[in-house]
């Protein structure tokens, strides 16, 4: 086991042990270890690496450290700068889990139900990957490649996530069969870029990877009255239908595909109405 103190420590350890497990919050990893589903020869502990902690602003971008915890996403200025991320973080697990679990962990697990992923995909986030060979950047939709699969190479770790600071409302809604501490059955993030006059929608738990509702976005961008911030009811309906069409859900123990398609449409309608209350009947 290596307890890394710096990013370089971690990269050196990973170069020596390319198949090592990275341990930060451990909220996903340890479940697999305890069930005997995750085998390992070496562990690199990265929760004490200061360079991975916290977040900073660089111009119009925010750089979110991979070690940013869910609890930290809901503290200080972040809920103002990234309301959808703070809302998503609040839906994760219990306070104990939110104190331990991290943004990097959510990305690395790449679960279709990862709660921050719809927000990040809606924000067109860039994932910053680091190894002893250097740094590379990947758009989020290129980073997550399948159910619990991603583009991380051996020796690589997630250093940070870069997202834009946008002027406009943001919403995150998540359906679960319990009012808290529940895995998502369907989730939706909607972010508005007023300057760019665009609406972006990320969907969770309704496809193998977090997806954008591209057609719905294109439609609604043109249907919104940007000067008054209002959306006609018919446009909201059409938008909800197009979002539902973007979903490719499955049946599993948490819900049926039919319910997920239905629910994601309801979430789309409600999120858009919250962002654009004007024009409601």
């Amino acid at each position: 086991m290596t307890i890394a103190r710096t990013l370089d420590d971690a990269c050196v350890a990973l170069a020596e042990h390319p198949d090592a497990l990275l341990l930060a919050g451990g909220t996903d990893l340890m479940v697999g270890v305890n069930r005997g589903q995750v085998g390992f020869d070496h562990v690199v502990v990265i929760d004490r690496v200061d360079e991975l902690r916290g977040w900073r602003r660089e111009g119009d971008e925010l750089v979110l450290g991979a070690g940013l915890t869910y609890a930290e996403m809901g503290r200080g200025e972040l809920p103002v700068l990234l309301p959808a991320l703070a809302q998503a973080a609040r839906t994760v697990g219990s306070p104990q889990i939110r104190n331990a679990g991290t943004l990097g962990g959510n990305l690395a697990t790449s679960s279709p139900a990862g709660d921050t992923l719809p927000v990040l995909v809606a924000l067109d986030a860039t994932v910053v990957l680091r190894s002893s060979h250097g740094t590379r950047k990947l758009a989020l939709d290129r980073f997550v490649t399948g159910v619990k699969q991603n583009a991380l190479e051996p020796e690589e770790l997630i250093e940070a996530v870069r997202v834009p600071v946008l002027d406009g409302p943001q919403e995150f809604l998540k359906v679960g069969t319990r009012n808290a501490m529940v895995i998502s059955v369907a989730s939706l993030a909607l972010v508005v870029d007023r300057a760019g006059r665009s609406v972006r929608v990320g969907l969770g738990s309704v496809a193998p990877v977090p997806v954008r509702a591209v057609e719905a976005e294109a439609f609604v961008d043109g249907a919104i009255d940007w000067d008054t911030g209002s959306a006609p009811e018919a446009a909201v309906d059409r938008f909800a239908g197009l979002v539902a069409e973007a979903a490719r859900p499955i049946d599993d123990q948490r819900g049926t595909a039919t319910y997920r398609s239905h629910a994601i449409g309801v979430l789309a309608r409600r999120a858009l109405r919250r962002a654009f209350p004007g024009g409601a009947p």
């Binding site: 609040r90 809604l173 998540k174 359906v175 319990r178 989730s187 309801v266 109405r273």
Partner: peptide, 13 residues
């Protein structure tokens, strides 16, 4: 909003 159906998921209208 936390006390509405859906709770922390903020789904309720």
């Amino acid at each position: 909003p936390m006390s509405l159906p859906g709770g922390a998921g903020r789904t309720a209208d």
